[in-house]
């Protein structure tokens, strides 16, 4: 698997898109630090961007890479390699290279600004881990969609839709639900609903870590009240990891049955 991971990884690292992604984060990091001129503020702005952007880039890149590397996949399938090894190698290759672009792209400006010496370093690291987790989750979802859809256009369409769903539509539905049923106790419902959306979950995770109750919103507040900060942090991280593991399990199952 390491071999395939290596090839996918280097293949991607050489492509323009990885550079583009890296340079984008680099510019974003510098711009935010310049404009805010304060680390905590820059980190909060960054969080708002990361929870929306990394899923988008993850799904689009995931689908694009899967369809583009179809030849490579077919070549590998005829070799004495297990199917699961091929797909895991490719998955880890793309999710890994995207995460690396994120970590380096943001890490460099923040290091230059002196984040290491400030009290914000753990918060910053948390933010990067959060972004990386989101990348792994959404690349996995993208892989599932591409495995199910031979047609690229359809695959792309579904990928954008799934991002839109989790980033925008889900919250809208959630709010409507809260308004309609405002006379009922909704704590447990909103807890469950948050767990089912990795983007919400990761937002709450970072906000809990940053300890900014003003920004937590209703669900975040419920979350904090229900579990306390430490338990809340643990639980949301655990759920995010679960959000990674489950789609990967589905990839492994689906890839065994697919014809090439």
């Amino acid at each position: 698997m390491l071999n395939i991971l290596r090839y996918s990884f280097f293949d991607l690292m050489r492509s323009r898109w990885s550079y583009f992604y890296f340079v984008f984060y680099l510019a974003l990091g510098f711009a935010l630090l310049f404009l805010n001129n304060s680390l905590p503020k820059a980190i909060i702005t960054l969080m708002n961007l990361i929870v929306v952007l990394t899923p988008l880039i993850g799904t689009v890149f995931g689908v694009m890479y899967f369809y583009n590397s179809r030849e490579f996949t077919e070549l590998l399938l005829a070799q004495p390699i297990k199917r699961s090894t091929i797909f895991m190698g490719q998955y880890l290759g793309i999710a890994g290279s995207l995460s690396l672009s994120l970590v380096l792209g943001l890490g460099i400006p923040f290091l230059a600004y002196g984040v290491m010496l400030s009290g914000e370093i753990t918060n910053f690291i948390f933010l990067l881990i959060d972004g990386a987790l989101l990348t792994f989750i959404f690349v996995a979802l993208a892989f599932i969609l591409s495995l199910y859809n031979e047609n690229r256009i359809k695959g792309f369409g579904y990928a954008i839709l799934i991002w839109l769903f989790f980033a925008v539509i889900y919250d809208g539905l959630f709010l409507i639900f809260l308004l309609v049923f405002e006379n009922y106790p909704l704590d447990k419902f909103s807890l469950a609903a948050t767990m089912l959306n990795p983007i919400d979950l990761s937002r709450i995770l970072v906000l809990l870590k940053l300890d900014i109750s003003a920004l937590l919103g209703y669900t975040g507040a419920v979350f904090q009240q229900f579990f306390g900060t430490a338990m809340g942090l643990f639980l949301s991280t655990f759920m995010l990891v679960l959000w990674c593991v489950l789609p990967v399990g589905i990839i492994l199952r689906v890839c065994k049955k697919k014809d090439f």
Binding site: R70, E71, E74, P80, K82, R83
Partner: peptide
């Protein structure tokens, strides 16, 4: 998958990573 060690294959359409 191990049995593919004994097989060499030439696919119909030569498609490789570009």
């Amino acid at each position: 998958w191990e049995y593919r060690n004994d097989i060499d294959y030439l696919p119909q359409i030569a498609r490789f990573p570009d």
